[in-house]
């Protein structure tokens, strides 16, 4: 089956846009477990985007990355996070530094900033998926913002994972994937980081009786 490059490019853009949309949903969501579900959904879109790029370009090593995304980010990490949340017994994210409407507005501004930053370099790309670079940067910035705006250790972790998704989208879409050895290494690091953060959340819960990172103020000048 042959798809014209133009339609292929549009399809990749559509998938990237869906990824960005889930970012906004995560920012707007107050319930912890729903945040994790949304992250799993976003990762599923990411795997789909990667598979699409692999199909359109015939670069088979991207299929491996897509499959790994499916296994690690759609299944394993969300499961680990769900376990952590169950044990913590916190259902709602009550504490937010920024309320939801303001958060969404800031995210909108971040998307504009991302397009502004990448504008000079996007026309340089010769690949059909080059527009996704701006969306990828936007997702990275929104993940960054989520980490600042939320105070629960679990949501900070979700913010970190969203950042990682954005980076992966950038690597897949703008450059047809990094060299395989680098990609495998990145997956390994993300998996270990998520597991370590999960262990930490448990220990913080035991030590502070809370995973609210505002309690982490013992160390100060």
């Amino acid at each position: 089956m042959q798809i014209s490059p133009h339609i292929g490019s549009q399809l990749v853009d559509l998938c990237s846009a869906l990824l960005l949309l889930t970012c906004f949903a995560i920012v707007a969501q107050r319930r912890l477990s729903a945040c994790v579900d949304l992250f799993a959904l976003q990762s599923a879109f990411l795997a789909l985007t990667a598979a699409l790029v692999a199909f359109l370009t015939g670069n088979h090593h991207i299929y491996i990355a897509a499959a790994l995304t499916g296994v690690i980010k759609v299944i394993i990490i969300p499961r680990v996070l769900k376990k952590v949340i169950e044990r913590l017994n916190v259902k709602r994210e009550l504490v937010m530094n920024v309320n939801v409407p303001a958060g969404l507005l800031i995210c909108g501004a971040l998307v504009m900033l991302a397009f502004f930053i990448t504008q000079p370099i996007i026309p340089l790309g010769f690949l059909l998926t080059r527009d996704s670079l701006a969306i990828a940067l936007a997702i990275v910035l929104i993940g960054f913002f989520t980490m600042i705006a939320r105070q629960k250790a679990v949501t900070q972790l979700v913010g970190f994972l969203v950042m990682e998704n954005g980076l992966f989208l950038g690597a897949t879409a703008a450059t047809y994937g990094m060299p395989l050895i680098v990609e495998l290494g990145v997956f390994f690091d993300v998996l270990i980081a998520a597991l370590i953060a999960g262990i930490y959340t448990n220990r913080l819960q035991d030590a502070f009786d809370s995973v609210d990172t505002t309690h982490l103020t013992v160390l100060k000048e």
């Binding site: 990275v140 680098v182 980081a193 930490y200 030590a207 982490l216 160390l219």
Partner: peptide, 25 residues
């Protein structure tokens, strides 16, 4: 205190390093 320091280190450095990955991309 050490848990706090370790968590802060993990989160700040992981985020910082993610930005470096964008540079590599």
């Amino acid at each position: 205190e050490s848990l706090e320091a370790g968590w802060k280190y993990l989160i700040l450095c992981s985020v910082g390093i993610s930005l470096a990955l964008f540079g590599v991309v």
